[in-house]
């Protein structure tokens, strides 16, 4: 799980252009949206693309992703249970 969390952090930094951030700067349990990393609605859509491209997981809409995307740890948990690749 630790490995997946780190991999996700790197993918998120890359996909969302979080310049100046390193995986160590992201707390796996901290909220990604709102305060936390301050991600917005476009980031949420881009995370949906990331899930499909990297893990073969199709999410229909941002509302569906809302709970999954609450933190890196929650994404990792969902990915480990649902990944297709």
């Amino acid at each position: 799980m630790e490995e997946l969390i780190n991999q996700l952090k790197e993918q998120i930094i890359e996909a969302l252009n979080l310049e100046d951030m390193t995986p160590a700067d992201i707390d796996a349990d901290a909220p990604l949206f709102g305060e936390g990393l301050g991600l917005d609605s476009i980031d949420a859509l881009e995370l949906i693309v990331l899930m499909e491209r990297e893990y073969g997981i199709k999410l229909g809409n941002p509302a569906e992703g809302k709970k999954i995307f609450s933190s890196v740890a929650s994404i990792a948990d969902y990915v480990s249970k649902n990944r297709k690749k």
């Binding site: 996909a15 969302l16 252009n17 476009i42 980031d43 859509l45 881009e46 693309v49 499909e52 491209r53």
Partner: peptide
Amino acid sequence: YYPSPALFV
């Protein structure tokens, strides 16, 4: 085929 919303906007 992975259309990027962050680019599209």
